[in-house]
């Protein structure tokens, strides 16, 4: 990393690149997650809409279960100091609090309800051939650029 001023944000990673085998494992995890996103119907606009309307518990049950499973997994990893397959320690890098968590979080929520997609499902929708999702992706890229442009002026 050359830019230390950005290192308190989530994108910063210390080492450069990965082994080919590690990339293959990441790709496999991505394929697995893409399948789960579609088969769980988390990628459907209607499911997101019905979640915000409190019409059905489907999404709440999925997110709740996922968090419980994730939490128990992390407790086990920490308790037994489980290592990665390459033998490295597993360390969670906490995302910091700043006003962006509230302002940005609310703005993302608006977009989530309108498009019916958070970032993961955007990619899954495109892969599944739902071509209007390309517009969601183009918008998201524009939003990312807009954030980068306004970042020096925004409260952090």
């Amino acid at each position: 990393m050359t830019q230390h001023t950005l290192s308190d944000f989530d994108d910063a990673q210390e080492q450069v690149g990965m082994s080919t085998a590690a990339y293959a494992r990441v790709l496999t995890m991505g394929i697995f997650f893409g399948v789960v996103l579609v088969k769980s119907e988390v990628v459907r606009w209607q499911r997101i809409h019905d979640m915000f309307l409190f019409k059905e518990p489907h999404m709440y049950l999925i997110i709740g279960t996922a968090v419980v499973v994730g939490m128990i997994s992390m407790l086990i990893i920490k308790r037994f100091e489980v290592k990665t397959v390459e033998g490295d320690p597993i360390v969670y890098q906490p995302k910091p609090f700043n006003p962006g968590v509230i302002i940005g979080g609310t703005i993302f929520g608006l977009g989530w309800a309108i498009t019916g997609a958070c970032p993961g499902p955007i990619y899954a929708q495109i892969g599944a051939g739902e071509w209007p999702a390309i517009l969601t992706f183009i918008g998201a890229m524009a939003g990312m650029y807009l954030y980068g442009y306004l970042r020096p002026k925004l409260p952090h």
Partner: peptide
Amino acid sequence: LLLGGVLVGFGTRYAGGCTSGHAINGISN
């Protein structure tokens, strides 16, 4: 979709994460 996408991109970057990084991974930790 286009304008909603702008909100998703801007919002997640400003918040420093989305449903996966914050809601699932963050709360799990």
